[in-house]
Amino acid sequence: MEILNQFGINPVLLLAQVVNFLVLLFILKKFLYKPILKVLGERKQKIEDSLKNAEEIEKRLAETNEKIDTLMVKTSKEIREMMDEANKERALHLEETKEKGLQMARDIIKKAEAAGRVDALRMQQEVMNKMADIVAVGLEKVTGKIINKKEQKVLIEKEVRNLS
């Protein structure tokens, strides 16, 4: 044990250092390892959760996209149907309008024709009157005398009757 003396080995000091080590073990366990390992574990947990969440979000996004696609297909089909229907209806409406227009035109023509006939009659009357005047003037020239009112009237009537 001479060598131990040379190195200054002292059982009390040895024990003191062992105690030192144990004290340090306790302190570090409490103040360093526990909190650090805890926070490391927490972070690991959080990262795992985040990854899981990301996966979930991706899945849901894919689902939503699919839903949107089907919805789009359905909607576009509906729109096409609606447009088809609208076209048909428009064609029908056009036909109807045409029909109505034609009818109206026919009515107008009929009315115009009727009005034209009345006009013609009146014009005939007028022409006759004018003619009577002209005839009277002509007779006066031919006979060379002014027929009195009574004769004139008789003559005109006679002539008019001949004319018509």
């Binding site: 250092q17 030192n20 302190i27 570090l28 103040f31 360093l32 909190p35 650090i36 926070v39 927490e42």
Partner: peptide, 23 residues
């Protein structure tokens, strides 16, 4: 060795005093 223990204690308390998830 006592000084070492003191330094280590101080450093570890400093390191974990305001422990955060984002270190």
């Amino acid at each position: 060795s006592w000084i070492t223990i003191a330094v280590l204690t101080a450093v570890s308390i400093l390191a974990t005093r305001k422990i955060k998830l984002v270190p």
